[in-house]
Design a protein around this nucleic acid. Structure first.
Lengths: 199, 199
DNA sequence: TCCAACATGTAAACGGTTACATGATTAC
DNA sequence: GTAATCATGTAACCGTTTACATGTTGGA
């Protein structure tokens, strides 16, 4: 059984035969699709898949430079992909450095916290715009996932919806967190100016 | 600069001096708090933090068995923690095996997909209930984060709200995905019974 | 002429997971 | 007596990240 990265690559190759370089671009362009990988990981993983007989490569020499090695699934590769797709899934582990920071929010000056959160906010907004644009483009071409004419787009559209909805929820939460922190900062400031009389 | 796991441990120790065993429980009991760790990771990491002078341990011999080594932050440890908390944050990388699976939903029989998604659904529901219970308990004791009497609870309450809101968004999406897949499955079944007349 | 994009990879360090290993105490 | 909990760790493996390494083509 290949690693998760291996399975992600098999998924991509199932849609479209690709060189390592292509895969690298496909991983980084479609941020919506739940995984990403460094180039230094992709080439060795392709070799492993090839050695395991899940993938076949043929060279296409372009105009100079190293020839592209275009990889495609073998029958064995298809079997491995389908097996993995049906295998049980554990989706309960989540790790978030953002949450780890916010957990100790009281140890960070409120101005710095505001700054961190507003960076996250901007990033999320940008990300949402990108993904909504991709979603709309696909949906215009194929229709909404319930009735999309190309069944391969169903999962893609659902993934885009997933990320859009979760990012919107995150954005709403960041706004709420900003609010809480501002409210407390304002209160502490006014406390400092007019401290309560000692009991 | 310690690893992220190291920083997570420093955060926990900043609230409460703990043995490795305590930390292990704190990591796994508070699923809400953005990180988790295996015991086999915690003990070596504590040693590293100790060697780096960020943490001090003293032994407390309980009634038999190996003595508890209770760890607490040093001044250096506090400095490292505060530095990390203020350092820039990249929150854009997300990996989700669920999304990786759904992306190729058309390659999985709809019945299997329904099953996978409903496992995720149950898990999310359970998780939400747990976290809402913890949130309510804390909020009864300290009030909502804007005005909580113990400022150390502000971050904790915000983290709980974060996870609750995101899990609710995820749940809504899973329901939507189930719907899409059922709709398409029903349609394909009726197609199979009464195929369109050839052109 | 220089920079971006195309195209391939290797090496070292770091981080995370699984399995292994030990032994006492407490509650059923 | 037996299972769960307390309490400590090690070793091997796997996966990820960062930095390094090389060379071409086409456009500004």
């Amino acid at each position: 059984m290949p690693s998760i990265l291996g399975c992600a690559i098999l998924e991509l190759l199932a849609r479209q035969a690709s060189s390592g370089y292509d895969l690298k671009k496909r991983f980084s362009s479609s941020l919506a699709f739940g995984w990403h990988a460094h180039d230094s990981q992709i080439y060795p993983e392709l070799r492993r898949l090839e050695q395991a007989g899940l993938v076949e490569a043929h060279e296409e020499s372009g105009s100079g430079g190293p020839p592209r090695r275009v990889h495609a699934l073998t029958d064995l590769g298809w079997d491995a992909l389908l097996d993995w797709l049906r295998s049980p899934l554990d989706d309960s582990h989540q790790k978030s450095e953002l949450i780890l920071r916010v957990w100790a929010a009281d140890l960070v000056p409120s101005e710095r916290m505001r700054q961190l959160l507003s960076e996250v906010e901007d990033q999320a907004r940008g990300h949402i715009l990108e993904m909504v644009a991709i979603r709309n483009r696909l949906q215009e071409r194929y229709g909404p996932p319930e009735v999309a004419t190309d069944s391969r787009q169903v999962g893609v559209l659902l993934c885009l919806e997933h990320d859009i909805q979760l990012l919107r929820a995150k954005l709403a939460w960041v706004e709420r967190a900003q609010n809480v922190i501002q409210t407390r900062a304002a209160f502490e400031k006014s406390e400092a100016r007019s401290p309560e009389p000692a009991a």
